[in-house]
Simulated scan of single mutants.
Amino acid sequence: MSLPLILPPIILGGAGFSHQVYRNPNAAQALQVLKRALELGLRAIDTSAYYHPSEILLGEALSHPDITNLYTRDQYVLMTKVGRIAADKFDYSPTWVRSSVFRSLQRLRTDYLDVVFCHDVEFVPEDEVIEAVGVLFQMAGEGHIRHVGISGYRTDILMRLAHRVREEFSRPLDIAQNWAQLTLQNDGLAEDLDEFKKAGVSCICSSSPLAIGLLRTNGVPVGDLGDFHPAPQGLRIASKLAADYVAAKGDDLAALALRYSIRRAQSLSSPDFRVTTIMGITTIAELEDNLATARQVLPVTESQWRWVAEAGPSTDAVSSQVKKDEELSAGVKDILGPWYGYCFPSPGDGWDVATKMPVPSRI
């Protein structure tokens, strides 16, 4: 079955089970969240070897009797990534790509992966990405992988690589993943979708609808690894002012931002081209709040999702919510001012793409 037909509108992000965004991620947390997510009809999970220990915790949870007794492997979509090992370490070599995939299969305790992405492709030379994609295509032919994709922040690089893949392998990438550019703060991804379609890409995953937690009342998340968020201080201040404005209007910035991203993704989708939203989840409360928010804007025609069919809004309710959101969104964009549309530097001046290493300090 083609990927646009099986990829759901909402995907559970596995970064919430990592040291980057959560303090002390653990097996009990992962099992509780996964059980509740599956109960609510959420049947797609995106993670990465880089989101340590996410793969391990998800594998333990998905192999627990509480889940295996109720769900078979073909009832959910499992996606992971290769290439990025640490904040300043990448390995796109054929040997490592293969090893990483086999390690992910072992960690996730599965016989196959629905999707494998090359992770944060703008940090490495493009020729290395092309070579890694070729390895993943081979592994797809061997039955270890169903679909192959690339991920990153820089849409210009993602689009260029998508065209190169089609030219060099005479087949397109199945999917691409981009983060924080289909949001209330930056809607740039929407302008690039036609180019992905020309390259034969049939699915786009839009992750970080809150721009890695920037668009919320409490500010950016800080996990065990400290404050890694790329937003400059000016954007952080503007986001806090926007959160205060939305709160004064009786709403919540995180909820507004999530509704915006989900509704935007659905408006850009078609039967043969799917745009989905990946939500980072860390707790059951967060899961339930986010899905309640999603219900406000997802159409009831997404019949494969039980919770949508059961709790989908009426047409009048959707129209009313859209009108309110448009007014609030306009106010947020006014407050963001010059920060609206701002792109995070990726990889930034401190990174040497050729060597895949930080630029040595001159001090």
Rank of each mutant, 00 (worst) to 15 (best):
P94H: 04
I85R: 14
M79H: 03
G152F: 03
Y51S: 00
L256H: 05
K324S: 14
V201A: 03
P4N: 02
A199Q: 01
L31P: 03
T95L: 13
D194S: 11
A37G: 04
A28N: 06
P358Y: 05
Q296M: 10
A247R: 15
D244G: 05
D325R: 11
Y260H: 15
S270D: 12
F102C: 12
D111K: 14
S329G: 11
T355D: 03
H144D: 04
R274D: 01
D251N: 13
G134I: 11
V121D: 03
G188A: 04
R274M: 11
A87G: 12
I10S: 04
D227R: 14
I204C: 05
L173F: 06
Y51P: 04
L182E: 07
G213C: 10
S269V: 08
I284N: 01
G41D: 13
K198M: 13
L215R: 07
S99G: 14
M357C: 08
D114L: 03
R216N: 15
S267R: 14
L42W: 12
I150C: 09
I130C: 10
L7H: 03
L70Y: 13
L189P: 07
A49L: 14
A242F: 11
P347S: 08
Y22W: 11
E326L: 12
K197N: 00
L214Y: 09
G200P: 08
G348T: 08
R236I: 00
D244E: 14
V318L: 15
P25S: 01
D194R: 09
V318T: 06
D74F: 05
P125K: 06
D352Y: 07
F102M: 13
Y153D: 01
P221N: 05
R146D: 04
S206D: 07
L258S: 10
L3D: 02
G280I: 03
T155H: 14
D46N: 14
S320F: 02
A285Y: 08
I204Y: 06
E302Y: 14
A180H: 05
V300D: 12
I204F: 01
N290C: 13
A292T: 11
S93Q: 02
V165Y: 05
T217Y: 15
W339Q: 04
A140T: 08
Y22G: 00
G152A: 03
P125M: 11
S239N: 00
W179S: 11
I281A: 03
A140F: 00
M159Y: 09
T293W: 05
L113K: 10
L291S: 02
D127Q: 15
L31V: 02
K198I: 13
S269Y: 04
T277C: 05
G134C: 00
